[in-house]
């Protein structure tokens, strides 16, 4: 773990320890947000994909014919307009949430970068803050 070259290593003080903890916490948050962003992106993709078939149905289906929309565990018979409205509302909510997560992740990333700078400056190669 420790080679002769590291002997001049700086001793870890309480402030450093707090910064290391903060970094570890941010790193966890970063991954957590990443998972959420990925999930939302997939969801939004699905929602976008479902808009097109509704349009097709509107053109090809009979006038006034209803479509089935999944509500909880049941399929509700709704008009085409209502279905579009539902999907669009969901899309707006999810997109807003996605933006929130993305900007939060950028914030976390910035703080991590600045902490990395401070900690590497002090501990050089005796500390490892990279992903395995």
């Amino acid at each position: 773990m420790m080679t002769k070259g590291d002997e001049a290593e700086s001793e870890v003080n309480w402030e450093d320890q707090k910064q290391i903890c903060r970094f570890s916490q941010l790193n966890n948050q970063y991954h957590d947000l990443g998972d959420r962003i990925e999930f939302l992106q997939k969801l939004i993709q699905q929602e976008n994909d479902s808009l097109l078939p509704i349009d097709d149905f509107e053109l090809l289906g009979e006038e006034g014919e209803s479509v089935r929309c999944l509500v909880g565990e049941i399929f509700s018979h709704v008009t085409v307009d209502e279905a579009k409205e539902r999907v669009n509302r969901k899309l707006r909510e999810d997109t807003a949430q996605l933006h929130e997560y993305t900007s939060k992740r950028d914030e976390v990333q910035r703080e991590m970068a600045s902490l990395k700078g401070t900690l590497y400056a002090k501990f050089k190669n005796t500390i490892n803050l990279e992903e395995d």
């Binding site: 565990e73 399929f75 018979h77």
Partner: peptide, 19 residues
């Protein structure tokens, strides 16, 4: 789902679902 039921109840017409 509950909100959907409430919305539908307001429109006063019976509505169809598949369950």
């Amino acid at each position: 789902a509950l909100q959907h039921l409430i919305d539908k109840a307001e429109s006063a017409e019976p509505h169809d679902v598949d369950f």
